[in-house]
Each structure stands twice: as structure tokens, then as C-alpha cells.
Amino acid sequence: MTFAVVAEELRKRYGDTEALAGFDLTVPEGTVHGLLGPNGAGKSTAVRILTTLLRADSGRAEVAGLDVATRGPEVRHRIGLVGQNAALDEILNGRQNLEMFGRLHHLGARQARARAADLLEQFALTDAENKPVGQYSGGMRRRLDLAAGMILMPAVLFLDEPTTGLDPRARAEVWESVRALVTTGTTVLLTTQYLEEADQLAGRVSVIDSGRTIANGTPDELKGMIGGDRIDLTLRDPRDMPAAAAALARVSTAEPHLDPDTRRISAPVRQRITALTEVVRALNEAAVTAEDIAVRRPTLDEVFLHLTGTAGTPQNPPRPDHHSHNGTEEAA
């Protein structure tokens, strides 16, 4: 297997803070790899080193088979970087932005113009090409930003938190664009603190915390690490909580977690269908009415909590199953 990105024992220190403390990563060519971690975990530092913006204190990294420390100019030819901010000129319009970046890739005037037109069409921005970017919506900006990162069809595209600060609709738009890019064969390294995002886009995920990779795997493998599925139960009447908890406890592998505010009970189970049937029967016997009952895979949120012992960052979008965290910890 050929690797598009290899990082070995990368270290970077800022004063007293160790941003990277022996960071390892391998990303096979043509895949989407998620780098998942909270704010300050070292994700951006890793990306900055891999994109030649920053020099590591020690360790080694290769991008597209080239050492980032010694062959920076060549690396910059083969990568695209879409950073946390939409790094665009707000006064220029969309077309002028792409033409400028095309020229800075030395495409020449005519080719830069043609490439800009292609990309505007590919990212559904042709209608807005003559509008100053300052007037673009958040989602349009990000799409233009992605387009600017794709000028030369990079071998590796780095997306550093591509949807931070976007509303759900704009986030879905960006996800769609990223999925389309992947079909062109580009390797994508995606950093995110949105666990759902890694789940949606990445084939493999590395969980990073305090400058170190603490887990690797497919989203499903990571979820499997914390053991099985979960049953979520929402009750109509909060007074039924104890009875329902008792019913759930009969099949769960750990103490059910109760959240009286949302009238929810959540517990890990092994045999998903058998367990579900059993719980429904027990609820009937106890004459408890459930408003909603569901079996689900654990979320990456819960995986993260399990691996690091801390919940995701406050920037994570509020999730309906957030309250089941404590239960997960017990299950672990």
C-alpha cells in the first residue's frame, strides 16, 4: 500500500505547551482520513507541519512521498490546504479569487481563467461568480475555499475543520462537496472536532489527544471498542422511570443511565434484537408506556469519552443523546 501521508514521532513545543508529543499517522492513498480531537489536541499543529507552514521540533513527515522538512516547495505543489477560516479575499469576487490562486499556481492567465470557470461550476458557484466574496453566505465561502484548495487537483487535500461555525445546512453542503472530491482520487486528511463529521466523511479515523494519537480505526471499529449497541428509551411519564429502568436492567450489560429531565433511559446491550424484544415485553408487563424506543450504535462522542475520559468540546453541536455519556462510562 502506498501512503499519501506519513508522520513519525512528530514533536512540537510552544513554550511550556507540548502541542505534539510524538504524533504518528499513516494515511493510505485515495482515502479520507479523519483526525478527531478536541480544541488544543494538536490537530492544527499537525496539519501545519504537514503543509510546510510549520517546522517540527523533531520527528519526520512525508506527504505524497516527499519529506516536508527538506522538499517544501515540491510538497506545496502537490497539496491543497483549506484552513479553519475561509482564506479568501473578501473584496474580490469569487472568480477573481480563483483566478488569483490559479496564477499563483503558475497556470498562466488563460488556464487560470479556464480552471476558475470549471471549479465555479463544479462547486455550484457560477451564479455568484461576480459577487464580492464578502457578500457570500458561510456555505458558499467554504465551497469557494474548497475550490481554491483544488486548483491543481492536489494529491493530498488538507481540510482543517472545514465546517466549524457553519449552520447545519451549510455543513451538509460542504460535506457533499467533499464527498464529490473524494471520487476524483484525491487523498483527504480532515481534522474535525465534530464527531459526526468524521463519521460522515472519513473511512478511517485517528483520535488525537494532548498531541498524541490514542486510537486508530474505522468509525465502526472505534464504536466497537466501547462494546456493543445501546438501547435508548424515552418515557411518556417520568414516574415510570424506576420500573422502566428495572426492565432495561434485565438485558443490559451495565447499569442503565437515567435522565429525568428528558425522561430518557439508556443502557448498553449485547444481542440487539433479542434485547429489544425482551425490553418491550418487560415494559408491557409493567404497564409502562414508552414514547420512543430505539437500538443504536454508539456515537463517536461516546467513543471519544471512553478513550480520553473527557467529553467532547463545548463547540460540539448539541446532540439528543448527549445525556447518555455517564451511562457509557459505566458500560466501559
Partner: peptide, 18 residues
């Protein structure tokens, strides 16, 4: 610098002095 435009320039295969 604040918008990240400078960083993008630095990540491009352009002359750094430009």
C-alpha cells in the same frame, strides 16, 4: 494574517517573497 490568507499563500507553490 487574521483571515488565513497569508497562510494560504504560504502553502502555495508561489515565491515566498511575492
Amino acid at each position: 494574517a487574521a483571515r488565513g490568507v497569508t497562510d494560504r499563500f504560504r502553502s502555495l507553490p508561489m515565491a515566498p517573497s511575492a
